[in-house]
Write a protein that binds this DNA or RNA. Structure first.
Lengths: 132, 132
DNA sequence: GTTAGCAGTATCCCAAAGGATACCAGTATC
DNA sequence: GATACTGGTATCCTTTGGGATACTGCTAAC
């Protein structure tokens, strides 16, 4: 698939999911979702694009530490997954703007879930270290 | 933190989150959550442990393709994050069982969210390829 | 005409993730 | 007494992700 996710990992567990097929589909679904958000810079790029479109160099300036090579690669992946569109305007010289798609909004619920769980988890783990 | 997640990436976007602090905390939360599920084998291990505890070699046999080294490392990370406990039984020779914790259940909602989104996404992307 | 900005690409390099293989001490079986 | 199983560890190797740096063709400003 165009997300670049690899072939299936086989784990057979018929006790929670009712069939091996369902189990495999679930696993693949979770792994696909994790895959599209993987990498150090996907989230920072999405956050930076939230609200307003940005040009390439603008993005690079906003996101401290990212190199042009990596930004370029990540933007292509985000485009492939239809989170971002690349708009070319025929100004001289051409202006290129990256913009979040409507579809990218569909990530919101999963990002919210990750966020809430992550914040809670950090507190839990750090809290325990303090008591030791 | 014990998840091994790295230092913060700075992205300042005051337009969606109301303060830079909130934005950073959200980003870190999401990245922490992604981090604890990262790696090729975490999910397969969790799935295999769902329902029944398993011994080390049992796990290795169930999860096709994982090596002892990687299984051992992943189990340690899962233990650190309190998803798994390692039980040692004083049989001769000792029996060691890995078991999901109650806390690991807290992942269920986020895994569900990832799963649903992931399955939907795969259909969307593959569907488009067919029409081309 | 030199400098600076744009939107990247190309090349080289390094560290981390993960695979392959060998090995260990202890016990139980044939 | 050789073989096999347990719960791993150690070593070596390849692949991947990502950083650093240089460069490109084009245009606008000084």
């Amino acid at each position: 698939m165009s997300t670049g996710n690899q072939g299936p990992i086989s784990v057979t567990n018929s006790s929670i999911n009712h069939s091996a097929v369902e189990c495999t589909e679930s696993l693949r679904g979770v792994q696909d979702a994790l895959y599209v958000l993987s990498g150090k810079w996907k989230l920072p790029i999405i956050i930076t694009l939230t609200g307003q479109p940005r040009r390439f160099k603008e993005l690079q300036r906003q996101i401290a530490g990212i190199t042009a090579k990596v930004l370029s690669k990540e933007l292509k992946e985000l485009e492939m997954n239809e989170f971002v569109v690349r708009n070319v305007y025929a100004t001289t010289p051409v202006t290129i703007e990256y913009e979040l798609t409507e579809y990218s909004q569909s990530l919101n619920t999963v990002i919210e879930a990750l966020r809430n769980w992550g914040i809670q988890h950090r507190e839990r783990i750090i809290g325990q270290h303090k008591t030791v």
